[in-house]
Simulated scan of single mutants.
Amino acid sequence: MRMDSSISNTVGAAVALQQYNADQSAQMSLLRQSLDTQAGQVAQLMEAVGDGPKLASVGSIGTQLNTYA
């Protein structure tokens, strides 16, 4: 009888691990989709901004540090 409960416990643990792995896989897929969506949105924003304002090329102001935000 001891063997039967040991086998049953092992099978139960295996089934629980399969369910856990399936849940983790679904969550990872959702995370990937969210990150891909965010990456696309950031790419669109970066395209819209373009190069931004041009830096000064002569003089002592605006030629060493870009403080544009």
Rank of each mutant, 00 (worst) to 15 (best):
R2W: 15
M3K: 15
D4N: 12
S5Y: 14
S5K: 12
S5N: 14
S5D: 14
I7C: 10
S8Y: 10
N9Q: 07
T10K: 03
V11E: 12
A13S: 10
A13H: 03
A13V: 08
A13K: 04
V15F: 03
A16F: 07
L17V: 11
L17T: 12
Q18V: 02
Q18I: 01
Q18L: 05
Q18N: 07
Q18W: 01
Q19M: 02
Q19I: 06
Q19K: 02
Y20V: 06
N21L: 02
A22R: 00
A22N: 04
D23L: 00
Q24R: 00
Q27R: 00
Q27S: 08
M28N: 06
M28R: 00
M28V: 00
L30A: 13
L30F: 07
L31P: 06
L31I: 01
S34L: 03
S34N: 09
L35K: 01
T37W: 13
T37V: 11
Q38S: 12
A39R: 07
G40P: 14
G40E: 11
Q41V: 12
Q41L: 10
A43Q: 15
M46P: 08
E47A: 10
E47S: 09
E47V: 08
A48H: 12
V49T: 10
V49K: 12
G50S: 12
D51N: 13
D51C: 05
D51G: 15
D51H: 07
P53D: 10
P53M: 04
P53W: 04
K54W: 07
K54V: 14
A56Y: 08
A56I: 03
S57R: 08
S57Q: 13
S57C: 07
S57D: 12
V58S: 11
S60Q: 08
G62N: 04
G62V: 03
G62E: 09
T63H: 11
Q64Y: 06
L65A: 05
N66F: 05
T67Y: 04
T67I: 05
Y68W: 04
A69W: 06
A69G: 10
A69Y: 05
